[in-house]
């Protein structure tokens, strides 16, 4: 952590790009926030739609891929999942989910 911060401070001080922030996936963070309309803020659902909070990123990704392919039945998720590329679904899952390791 200390090295991280030092690197950032050094880069910022030299007027270089901001490597850590640039790597942060802002685009996917915005995509993922779309899910909260139905699944509740930060995925904390009051019921009905499953809670996403606390689920693993890999589990969310698998579910999204299965909705997209039709392998897993749903009321609306089979439609929503088809709106994204597999790569977009992976990035969304990484934002929403907890890293498995």
């Amino acid at each position: 952590m200390q090295n991280c911060v030092s690197a950032v401070l050094l880069a910022a001080g030299l007027g270089l790009s901001f490597p850590l922030l640039a790597q942060d996936d802002h685009k996917a963070e915005a995509w993922a926030s779309a899910c909260f309309a139905c699944h509740g803020p930060d995925g904390r659902s009051d019921g009905g739609m499953p809670a996403l909070a606390g689920q693993s990123a890999d589990g969310i990704y698998r579910a999204l891929i299965d909705f997209k392919s039709g392998k897993r039945a749903a009321t609306v998720m089979h439609r929503h999942a088809q709106g994204y590329s597999d790569e977009q679904l992976r990035r969304i899952a990484d934002v929403l989910g907890v890293a498995s390791n």
Partner: peptide, 8 residues
């Protein structure tokens, strides 16, 4: 469920 979650 949708209305409660989107209101939240």
């Amino acid at each position: 469920a949708w209305i409660f979650n989107i209101l939240n």
